[in-house]
Amino acid sequence: MSGTPLVYYLLLAALLFSIGLGAALTRRNAILVLIGIELMLNAANLNFIAFWRYSPNPEALSGFMFVLFSIAVAAAEAAVGLALIVSIYRHRRTTRLEGMSSLKG
């Protein structure tokens, strides 16, 4: 099967995490910030799967189960986050983060 050492998977996940972090920190559109957060979550999932595959006892399934639960939680987070953005857009007519600087509805 794949003869790729573990360190390449970890570096790839770190790079993906940094791309997501850069997007979350620099973009001004709330949807793009949410996309950055999703990329960071996916980088963590890739780390879990890689460590599970390279662990001495993969039959324990711990990392694998963690990824399944993490995918489900991320889906819930994306649904609620996008509903919040749509709701704010109805009030403010914007999805830019500068337009959301006050908590008054």
Binding site: N29, I31, N42, A72, A74, L82, V86, Y89, T95, R96
Partner: peptide, 20 residues
């Protein structure tokens, strides 16, 4: 979950907030 649901959700959110 991701290709089927989250990406479609993001497309919907982009369309709903299109005039932003």
């Amino acid at each position: 979950v991701y290709v089927g649901a989250v990406a479609i959700l993001i497309v919907f959110a982009l369309l709903l907030t299109r005039n932003a």
